[in-house]
Amino acid sequence: MSLQRQPAASGHLQTFANEDDRRRLTGAAVKAVLRLVASWEASNAEGAALLGVSESTWDRMKAGKWEGVLSQDQLTRASALIGVFKGLHLLFADDMADRWPRLANRGPIFDHLTPVGAMIDGGIPRMLEVRQYIDALRGGL
Rank of each mutant, 00 (worst) to 15 (best):
R5G: 00
Q6G: 01
A8I: 00
G11H: 01
H12T: 14
Q14G: 04
Q14R: 15
Q14M: 10
T15G: 08
A17D: 12
R24I: 03
A28C: 04
A32E: 09
A32H: 05
L34Y: 08
L36E: 00
L36D: 01
A38L: 10
A38P: 00
W40E: 02
S43Y: 11
A45K: 14
E46L: 03
A49M: 03
L50Q: 01
L50S: 06
L51G: 01
V53Y: 02
S54G: 13
S54A: 09
S56M: 04
W58L: 00
R60V: 02
R60N: 04
K62S: 13
G64V: 05
G64F: 05
W66C: 03
L70M: 11
A78M: 05
L81S: 06
I82H: 04
G83M: 01
G83K: 06
H89Q: 12
D95R: 12
M96V: 11
R99Y: 13
W100Q: 01
P101W: 09
R102S: 11
A104G: 05
I109T: 04
P115I: 01
V116E: 00
G117Y: 07
A118S: 15
D121T: 09
I124Q: 09
P125T: 06
P125F: 06
M127L: 15
L128T: 07
E129C: 02
Y133D: 12
I134S: 04
A136N: 14
L141R: 13
L141S: 12
L141T: 09
